[in-house]
Amino acid sequence: MTAPDTAQSMPALTVACPACGSPPGSLCTSHGGTRLRRSDVHQARTKAFKAQQPTATA
């Protein structure tokens, strides 16, 4: 693939995925761990990433 994978640039990769168990920096897996999710990450991973972010106080 000449273009970088979409998921590789997602900030959610900085946390582990609670859905599939992928460690930080690794892509999420699907189909019982047999395929990498190259276009997105699990919703649970995005939620875990957002929960880790400081909240704005304005």
Score class of each variant (00 low, 15 high):
Ala12Ile: 02
Gly25Cys: 03
Gly32Thr: 02
Gln43Arg: 15
Gly32Arg: 09
Ala51Thr: 05
Thr6Ile: 14
Thr57Ile: 07
Gly33Leu: 02
Pro11Gly: 06
Phe49Asn: 09
Ala7Tyr: 06
Cys17Pro: 11
Thr46Leu: 15
Gln52Asp: 04
Cys17Asp: 12
Ser9Gly: 15
Ala3Pro: 07
Ala44Gly: 14
Thr14His: 00
Gly32Asp: 14
Pro11Lys: 13
Ala12Thr: 08
Gln53Trp: 01
Leu27Asp: 04
Thr2Met: 07
His42Arg: 08
Met10Glu: 13
Ala3Gln: 13
Ala7Gly: 08
Arg35Thr: 05
Arg37Val: 14
Leu27Arg: 14
His31Tyr: 11
Lys50Pro: 00
Arg45Ser: 01
Gln52Leu: 10
Thr14Ser: 15
Gln8Gly: 04
Gly21Leu: 00
Gly25Phe: 06
Ser22Glu: 00
Cys28Ala: 12
Pro54Glu: 09
Gln43Asp: 13
Gly21Pro: 01
Met1Ser: 10
Leu13Asn: 03
Pro11Gln: 08
Ala58Leu: 12
Thr34Tyr: 08
Thr6Lys: 15
Ala19Trp: 00
Pro24Arg: 03
Gln53Thr: 04
Ser39Asn: 08
Pro24Val: 00
Pro4Ser: 05
Arg37His: 11
Gln8Asn: 10
Asp40Gln: 10
Ala16Asp: 11
Leu36Lys: 15
Arg45Thr: 01
Thr29Asn: 14
Gly33Gln: 03
Ala19Asn: 09
Gly32Lys: 10
Ser30Tyr: 09
Asp40Trp: 08
Thr55Asp: 13
Ser9Phe: 05
Arg38Cys: 09
Ser39Asp: 12
Gln43Cys: 07
His42Thr: 01
Thr46Lys: 15
Pro4Gln: 06
Ala48Lys: 11
Ala51Tyr: 03
Thr46Phe: 13
Thr55Trp: 10
Cys28Asn: 06
Ala56Thr: 10
Thr34Val: 02
Gly25Pro: 06
His31Glu: 07
Pro11Trp: 03
Gln53Asp: 02
Cys28Tyr: 13
Thr46Ser: 14
Leu36Phe: 12
Arg45Met: 01
Leu36Arg: 11
Asp5Ala: 09
Ala51Gly: 13
Ser30Ile: 14
Thr55Tyr: 07
Gly33Ser: 09
Cys17Thr: 01
Gly21Asp: 03
Gly25Lys: 03
Cys28Ser: 12
Ser30Met: 12
Gly25Ile: 03
Leu27Met: 04
Gln52Met: 11
Val15Leu: 07
Pro4Cys: 04
Lys50Asp: 12
Arg45Gly: 00
Ala3Asn: 02
Pro24Met: 10
Gln52Trp: 01
Phe49Ala: 09
Pro11Asp: 11
Met1Tyr: 04
Thr2Val: 07
Pro24Asp: 00
Lys50Ala: 04
Ser9Arg: 11
Ala7Met: 07
Pro54Ala: 08
Gln52Lys: 09
Ala16Phe: 07
Ser30Val: 11
Met1Leu: 06
Thr29Gly: 13
Ala58Ile: 08
Lys47His: 12
Ala3Thr: 09
Thr34Asn: 13
Pro23Lys: 07
Thr6Tyr: 15
